[in-house]
Design a protein around this nucleic acid. Structure first.
Lengths: 233, 233
DNA sequence: TAGATTGTTAATCGATTAACAATC
DNA sequence: TAGATTGTTAATCGATTAACAATC
């Protein structure tokens, strides 16, 4: 928005471009900026330069300025960035201020662990309920969240305007569960089912989590560290 | 290795290069190849071409051939790739055959969820125990894994040649716990403590997991999907 | 004003894709 | 042998870094 008065001749073009064409690499770095700024606020920092932030985050100052400028001029020449303002802007970009509503499907070990964290609320996401098909769990509550029957998932999602489905179901059940929710207007899935959930409709967003991939990356790095490594190195 | 007889004049150079300089981007794709090949084996497929694999995985055939060739010629011209052989080779690269040994530190909700999965053994990693400082849990067993006191962590790690520490402790405790394990010869950490664990020693490998970042990426994508998106688009 | 630091353009680097010769 | 498909080189594309003019 700031850019409008700076570049009066081209503002129409700039509005359209402001959020479009942001490189994926930049988007994936936003949560880390957000985390880092949260820490800086906690420490009472009021302002920070790209130089200093670059030292904390171990990236280049150039990258920080380039990244932030994908979304507009959040800083001020000669001053740097206002920590709280930048944090607020990035929160906005990441939808923290939109109050998305989520339900967790599957009340197994992972579902329960996700019910127990503060991860959601800390990021502006409200959890409404858990869903499972185990009659012993239905009607109980886990970490303050009611456990409902999967049979009620579609109507519940519709009536409560659920935005996000957190899938901790066995992979065989993932599509069936997701389809119900899509019919009820759910827009995004956080999928822990260890398979690539995918829909033709580009408006349905899926974030597939593969914890095992992360473990394997760790094993690869251990195997190839200088200490261990291949014998012919 | 195969490259030796193909390029007799330059083999010394090639041995050094064979595993060195593999782009990070390639390494991060290996677990997905591994998963996909596991599925193909389950389905009884014997051979596959880069073309067909590219269609299944929705990447280019060129990328698949380029990626695999970072590690040697696993295929055969005019034939493609032998599914089982390729799977075995990638398993080897990822250390699945090395039988790494892990312990989980923290028997809270996440620690328990990790105790319950088959994620580790499926990737050749053996879990030996959980550690916690809650006296009520010490001496019990969770999903077949004994829960020990944190006080025993260092000696246990040394005596049992533990390779990997899975950290599900509060972030304030992460370095203290990790340092103990490093003294005991632990080489790698799978860190869920939601902070960047980092050591000067390049032989200590850390894989920092930030589940919350993944949730935020999902929210960003929902917010910016064509359906919702910014009003001025 | 002078100093600092951004926003932005240009240069570099790395990763992906295309093309094709090698070869099974 | 002819057809298929890899391994590999060259071309393209995207992402990162460097440099500096704009400006607070």
């Amino acid at each position: 928005m700031e850019s409008i008065d700076k570049l009066p001749g081209t503002f129409e073009k700039r509005i359209n471009e402001s959020k479009a064409n942001v490189p994926t690499a930049v988007i994936k770095r936003l949560p880390r900026y957000h985390r880092c700024l949260t820490d800086l606020i906690r420490d009472g920092r009021m302002r920070i330069s790209s130089k200093e932030l670059s030292e904390i985050m171990e990236v280049t100052a150039s990258q920080i300025r380039q990244d932030l400028n994908c979304f507009g001029g959040f800083g001020q020449q000669g001053y740097g960035y206002n920590v709280k303002y930048l944090h607020a802007k990035i929160s906005e970009l990441l939808g923290v201020t939109d109050g998305y509503r989520a339900v967790i499907i599957g009340a197994g070990n992972l579902g329960r662990a996700l019910a127990a964290t503060h991860m959601f609320e800390r990021r502006g996401v409200t959890r409404l309920a858990l869903f499972d098909n185990n009659p012993e769990l239905i009607g109980t509550s886990i970490c303050g969240l009611p456990v409902h029957s999967i049979d009620e998932l579609e109507s519940f999602s519709r009536e409560n305007a659920v935005d996000i489905g957190v899938l901790t179901v066995p992979k065989e059940a993932a599509y069936e569960v997701a389809d119900k929710m899509i019919r009820a207007g759910v827009k995004g899935f956080w999928n822990f089912a260890n398979m690539e959930l995918k829909f033709d409709n580009p408006d349905i967003i899926v974030e597939n989590v593969h914890m095992g991939d992360s473990l394997m990356t760790l094993c690869y790095a251990i195997k190839n560290s200088s200490q261990n490594g291949d014998a012919n190195a």
